[in-house]
């Protein structure tokens, strides 16, 4: 694509390159057992897996919220541990939990975040105005985040992640527990951001979401990447009708397939109409 070729400088360095990443917690739990993963610049990448598969751990290791036990993480070529400054500057994180400070206003939340990333006052001001506008938060500017609705808080978290203009946006289950309207709204936002050149790593439980948004998908289960490819690719390779069936096969729960739900005699008679 011409646009992506113009935006990337030189031969494209992967946005995220994870090699043999192992994370063992002090409790002895091995959350990641040697994960390798590469996300190209400009990609919209989906990471799917059941609860406890290691999705959040992978994200925590990539953003400095957890230290890897072994292995390597490079973000646009910068080592996430040794060159953490450059690596973290390139990443925006919208975590799963609504982790905003109740005492701060919407504007302060964004402004402080920009400051932590070294943006000067004038730049912060401009960027805050821009984000409040695009996330329809202008009227909430001076409201304390504690007084916002759940949906508004979600938007603030996404705006905060974008505040310092990251090249890689990491979305950890952004639509878990949100209503249909907000989910679609968020989809539009992130698609827009991706089309402007930002690489996106999305984790989700919703296969429909991954199918809709992601150009490439990886399945993670029990701390290991069990497969990856485009969604059609995966469905085709597994010889099943949908990504969901491929997923169920990979996590060893084939019996849960929707093909078996409501597969009773009467449904057959419906088919004959």
């Amino acid at each position: 694509m011409e646009s992506s070729a113009a935006s990337s400088s030189g031969p494209s360095v992967p946005a995220l390159q994870i090699t043999e990443l192992v994370k063992r917690y002090p409790t002895g739990v091995e959350a990641l057992k040697g994960v390798s993963l590469e996300i190209a610049d400009g990609e919209f990448f989906g990471l799917l897996g059941p609860n406890g598969a290691g999705k959040s751990t992978l994200i925590h290791c990539s953003t400095g919220l957890a230290g890897p036990t072994s292995g390597e993480i490079r973000i646009f070529g910068h080592d996430a541990v040794n060159d953490y400054r450059e690596a973290r500057e390139a990443v925006g994180l919208a975590p799963q939990e609504l982790n905003i400070d109740w005492f701060l206003t919407v504007e302060e939340t964004l402004d402080f975040h920009g400051g932590y990333f070294g943006m000067n006052k004038k730049d912060r001001k401009e960027r805050v105005d821009e984000l409040l506008e695009s996330f329809s938060l202008v009227e909430k500017r001076n409201d304390r985040t504690r007084d916002l609705s759940g949906g508004m808080k979600r938007r603030v978290i996404l705006a905060r992640a974008l505040m310092h203009r990251p090249r890689l946006l990491i979305l950890d289950e952004p639509t878990a527990g949100v209503d249909v309207e907000l989910r679609l709204e968020l989809w539009h936002y992130v698609q827009q951001v991706n089309s402007e050149g930002t690489t996106i790593l999305l984790t989700t439980h919703y296969l429909e979401e991954a199918e809709q948004l992601c150009s490439r998908i990886a399945f993670i289960n029990g701390g290991e990447i069990v497969d990856h490819g485009s969604s059609e690719d995966l469905a085709e390779r597994f010889g099943v009708g949908s990504l969901e069936d491929a997923y169920l096969e990979l996590v060893g729960r084939k019996e849960l397939s929707r093909a078996h739900v409501g597969a009773e005699p009467e449904s057959e008679s419906e088919d004959s109409f």
């Binding site: 919220l65 400054r85 400070d101 975040h113 905060r160």
Partner: peptide, 17 residues
Amino acid sequence: QQKFQGAIDDQLSSPAS
């Protein structure tokens, strides 16, 4: 309090040393 809210992650995932 920031640990409870998880809000401290915003500082911890920033480039601040």
